[in-house]
Design a protein around this nucleic acid. Structure first.
Lengths: 341, 341
DNA sequence: CTGAAAGCGCTTACAG
DNA sequence: CTGAAAGCGCTTACAG
């Protein structure tokens, strides 16, 4: 490992001071210099392949130029658009983005240390739904690094953003009602904030349609939540002819379980899941979903970090625009007369 | 935004020098001090909630304590175990891990700047299969930050690691042969390195069994590659009774396309995909796969970074242990006599 | 137009 | 047992 080449080295080789080198590197016009000098420095810079030391820069500038995004499971396809939105917005502001998984945020972990310690991360976007250790949350709240919570209501200093979960629950339910269903169940998602909101939307929509809302079939997340949820939903009386599932992954799991139970989808049961993902198009039957503006959520979250760094007041809240949108696929259809009950 | 509290502040409040504070913070025994002093410092430390500045630390230590992992699509479920292996190994060595997506590595992006610039990232694990801009690769090669390439053969200074792709291709093919298939096609994955290796395994295994290997049905990656691949494979004569698919995602896509084409899986066509993921269990029919030791790959990759940082020679190569393993599910079965041809 | 110097917050020899 | 000082590599007022 050879020694790092510094501005000092460049200065020596170009016969100028480090101030000049720094000015050239940063494109600062403040220190005006002759074209001749600039060219000479630039020549040396590219010749030796100079790269600035980010640690030194961050220390001096008191800003790292990097924000961290921490989510529950990085491989959840639901985040794809959000990551994209975050990346674009961050790059536009001159920030790099790094990702991490919530399960890495354990007390004492080096990942957490990097998040908490100032100097390498300027802001944190956190998808948190009550799953994080309370000690860790307290630490996070105590730190000065701004934290914007995504889809949760626990934000330190009130910086939180969420998609319209109530609206998603409503529109999913409305879709099934419009198809003619009256016996509709709500499956999945445990007792987390987002579930509560989505389930609320379901309840409201059912009531408005003069239908009776059912108890939440609470089953956590993941594929398995879908299969367990199906069994529990089918045990309800009267037997539902349609279900709203709390998320795509559980929706896929529910579809698989329905297949195993010998149910025809959508003939025997209509299914719609909240959140859209590519996989919904790649299972059979395809899965109807509600698409939420995740890319916009990401963009707004980055703006909120900027707001926090500027010391401006939070603009917390729910993203109502664009509105949740039903993407009808093969898993939802009008109820059939021959539907088992 | 209040000013950051520094060791200097702690020192003043505790009535000691910063050397002592630093020693307490780092648990350094070098500077022995009285228990009384240590306790006093610790009290102040916790009282004000001191957190070290990582930028200053990195600069002084000439090491950031963070490694970056950059992969093609972070939401590819294939990486889940690998991330886990990387995280565990990194934490054990005292390193934090941050994740990024390959598509962020564009010339001029701040993400790339952070990767290239020394000081904030000590090493890079890169899943690269020929998709990255050659300019970027050259920059990466030029930098001093060690890069370990995962599943590719392009590693700068020869630090690369891969799972046994040839073995995976062989064992997948062997599985179908053992079931009694003789007309077996290979679908998906374009012309990337991993594909070449897996396809090679298929060819070898076919030959050893005295069967004729077919031309690669080259269709890139993703779900769509599976559907396109199916059409192309079915056009081959004699029509195959079984296919090896280059990866799980394409395998799912192929299953969906087969359903749309009215094919019964596995009766009309047996399918096995390389790489295992939870989703393989959650589609119907379930998808047979070959599981590769991704967690171990992650662990070894972290060790390789350590090797590089210590200036020790590369231990590049293929991970043969544990060996690829067939996970038979519902998509593969013996050929049926009534199979269409 | 250019240089010398201070200082960001740490760690680590070195001196006492 | 503890402190003063140097220095990691930058950026930025300030002086000339």
């Amino acid at each position: 490992m050879t020694r790092m080449v510094t501005q000092k080295d460049i200065a020596r080789r170009a016969g100028v001071s480090v101030s000049v080198v720094s000015a050239v590197v940063n494109g600062t016009s403040h220190t005006r210099m002759s074209d001749e000098t600039r060219e000479r420095v630039e020549a040396v810079l590219t010749e030796v392949g100079y790269v600035p030391n980010d640690a030194a820069r961050s220390l001096r500038r008191q800003r790292a130029g990097t924000i961290a995004v921490v989510v529950e499971k990085v491989d959840n396809p639901v985040y794809r658009d959000m990551f994209h939105g975050i990346y674009d917005a961050a790059e536009a502001r001159g920030w790099a983005v790094v990702l991490g998984d919530t399960i890495w945020m354990q007390s004492g972990s080096h990942f957490l240390a990097r998040l908490l310690g100032r100097g390498s991360i300027d802001g944190i976007l956190l998808r948190h739904d009550g799953i994080i250790d309370e000690t860790v949350m307290r630490l996070l709240r105590t730190q000065q690094t701004p934290v914007v919570t995504l889809e949760g209501r626990h934000a330190p200093d009130g910086r939180w953003l969420a998609v319209d979960d109530v609206g998603a629950g409503r529109i999913a339910t409305a879709h099934l009602i419009e198809l003619g269903h009256r016996e509709i169940a709500y499956v999945g998602g445990g007792r987390a904030f987002v579930t509560t909101a989505r389930y609320d939307g379901y309840v409201t929509q059912m009531r408005e349609a003069g239908l009776t809302a059912r108890a939440l079939v609470a089953t956590e997340f993941g594929f398995e939540a879908g299969s367990k949820g199906l069994v529990m939903a089918l045990a309800q009386r009267p037997r539902p002819t349609a279900v709203v599932v709390n998320n795509v992954i559980s929706g896929i799991g529910l579809l698989a379980a329905a297949h195993d139970a010998g149910l025809q989808i959508p003939e025997d049961l209509s299914v719609i899941a909240i959140h859209d993902a590519e996989i919904a198009d790649n299972v059979r039957p395809t899965l109807s979903t509600v698409k939420l503006p995740m890319a916009e959520l990401g963009t707004r979250a980055v703006e909120e970090i900027a707001t926090a760094l500027d010391g401006r007041p939070p603009r917390a809240g729910i993203l109502h625009d664009p509105a949740p949108q039903v993407i009808m696929r093969g898993s939802s259809a009008p109820p059939t007369s021959g539907q088992p009950s």
